[in-house]
Amino acid sequence: MTALLTNSDPVLAAFAEEIGADGPIAIEGKRTRWDIGGALHDSTRVLRAPAGVVEYVPEEMTVTVRAGTPVNELQAVLAADGQRTGLPERGGTVGGAIAVGHNDHRMLGRGAVRTSVLQVRYVSAEGRLVSGGGPTVKNVTGFDLPRLMAGSLGTLGCLAEFILRTNPVPAVSQWYCASDADPFLAYRAVLAPSAVLWDGAQTWAQLEGHGVDVASQAQALRAVGSFTEADAPAAPTGHRWSLRPSDLASIDGYETGAYTAVVGVGTVFAEKAQPQRRIDPAIAIVAQRVKDQYDPLGRLNPGRQVGGW
């Protein structure tokens, strides 16, 4: 019996049973991002996904975790063995973080949420337990359902369990801050910053790796500004904007209000909301076909839509 064919897990089977095959259904985590994608229809049955770390194999750099597990609990388990994941810690659950698909503001150093998910297990609109992807760090077997499920807001399946890729925590992790630096020059001055944040006045850069490398990269930073060691800035909050990395150079042209921009990525956390981005009508047709394939009766997270069309 292969690892993937073990769909007989009693916890997941019970979850599938609870979801059943009828009636509108939604899965809640901690409701930290509950409003994304629109308001849930009234009279929708709301359930919680199973929680807990099922199996952590540090030497494989993989962890099997239930969707209902709080992200900070997962990170604590991984940290005990010197590892971490790309999931952002925003007080929510693993399933919520993957359903939303938003990356951590330190994504450059931690990896994107979507590339973290090696295997996904979910309960389908028909109440069946489905697996996609595989348990190994490298896998191109069949269609990439983990990619489809990450960022799908639970509109294609009720997310139940994941195998995630983990990464080693670097030996040294240090933030630097300067108020006279060009953030774009700072981004290019170092080889692989884990984050470069900019609020229009101050630039923060996170450098990670061996101590000697962090020290030499800090020197490189100081060539473009008066960078000094700083405490980690608070995780940026506010409305989330998605721009091209190059757009940040002309960010004053956007109605953001106060902002923190993630340089090299294009995410902006702003006082004002980004005007709604409508997806291309041709894509909307395919997206609707995807939705119809996975949820023909519209029972999964009704009222929520991914991307707006």
Partner: peptide
């Protein structure tokens, strides 16, 4: 079809990834 995008987080399902 134009799948994905060069902005930070393109909207919609990750059809590019699929």
């Amino acid at each position: 079809l134009h799948l994905g995008g060069i902005e930070a987080e393109p909207p919609g399902y990750d059809l590019r990834g699929v």
